[in-house]
Every structure is written in structure tokens, then in C-alpha cells.
Amino acid sequence: MTKAGERFALGLVLLAALATVLPFLYMLATALTGQWEAFRYPPALIRGRAHFENFPAALTALPFDRFFLNSAIVATCVVVGQLFTSAMAAYAFARLRFPGRDRLFLGFLSVLLVPALVLLVPRFLIVNALGWVDTYAGLISTELVSVWGIFLLRQFFRTIPRELEDAARLDGAGEWTIFRRVVLPLSKPALATLAVLSFVDQWKSFLWPLVIARSTEMQVVEVGLANLHGLYYANWPYQMAAAVTATVPLLLLYLVAQRYFIRGIQMTGVT
């Protein structure tokens, strides 16, 4: 590209970046605006003092502390469960030889043929039959295995040199020991990647918690935020204050673990 063209492209992209950031700034500014000042036109951001009291008021309008706790519990359990099941299954697929392995792996992958939405109703009926509606078990149980996770970890495990395991095997280590002592410690980056991705996915999930959690005490942040939207329809500063609070944990995680985040997304698409 020519120098000028390059500069033009970069300028365009910076403009796009600005466009992605502006709504966030608008969210924050509205969150700090007085309830009636938000309805001034043309919209002027923060006139006079910043109304920090919007935050405690919005967050107690519905029990958001409980929502955050629920989201954290559910997301953490799902992450731990997915790491556990995915790593074990991936180890079997990547390292052990047994009849029908490749066909079974394809069978696992074939789950991806079924869009999540197709599973929504029957999964709900199963969870309902188990009596798990409106419980943590209902929110967590269906998410404990991720075929993507198995796929990614299998790809990663295959890159670990076999010599390390063979040495352990000569020392008489069993498969479980090799898995725990050799493969898992070497896979920390991959595990961290999967953990970050599945945590964020879980935190953002909306439809499943919407149908499973019935009582206020069992709601997660995303659904709680939507409920606040319904209750305080015209109070934009409250809604924005809650929205900011709901976004902060994810943005913090993104900024801290950006490397894993990006790598995870790139692994799903490319590797």
C-alpha cells in the first residue's frame, strides 16, 4: 500500500475503534446523570455534579449482590466442570489407543451439528423431570461438558512431545498419574484459555438462566439486568448504572487475560 493509503486505512479503523468505545462512554456518562437530566435534549453528558448515588440505588432496586453471587457460582462451577471433563476426554482422544477411538471422536464432534437452541426445550424437560428447575443444579448441569473444549485440548495435547510421557511410563506411572503429573502441568496455557473462554461464555449466557431460574434469588446478572430494564423502564440512569456494573467484571477479565482470550478465539477458528 502507498503511504497515504495506509494512513487513510488506519484513520478509518481508528474511527471504527472510537465508534466501539463511544457507546461504553455514553453508558458510563448516563449512569452518572441525574434521573431527569437524562431526558434533556440535546443529550448533554453529566451536567453539574456526577450522580454516584445512582449506583447503590440501582443495585439495590433488585438484589444485584445476589445476582452477582449466582453468576459467579454458576460460572465457576461450569468452568471447573468443563476443564475436568474436557481435559480427561481430550487426553483419552489424544494419547490413548482403543478401538473405535476416531469414530467416537467424530461422534463427539457431531454434537456440534445440533444448534444449542434445538436442545433448549428437551433439556428443559429433562431438568424439569429431575426437579432441578430454579436450582443451581439446573443452571449448571447442562453446561458441564463442552465439545469445543474437548476439541481444543485434544489439539493441544497432541503437540506435547511423547518422550516426556514415555519417561514417566518407564518409571511405572499409570495413565492417571501421567495425566495429572505430566500432561496437565504442561497444558496450563491451554487450560487457562479454555477457562477464560468458558467463564465469559457462561457469564454472558441468557436464555438458559431465563427459563431455568424462576425465583428472584436464583437469577443471574444478565437476567437480573433485563428484569431491571422491565421494572425501571424510563429510568435510564439506573439501567445504565446496573449495566456498567454488570460489564465491569467481564472487561476487567478481558483486560487482565487478554492474551488467553484472543488465543482462545483464534484457536477455535484457525489452529
Binding site: A16, V21, M27, K204, V221, E222, A242, A243, L250, Y254
Partner: peptide
Amino acid sequence: AVFLPYASSVVA
């Protein structure tokens, strides 16, 4: 910056 929206709460 461009990635931020994907890494934030959907409902927000």
C-alpha cells in the same frame, strides 16, 4: 477497543 463489545455483558 474493537474487541471490547464482544467481551462485555450482552444485556448491558
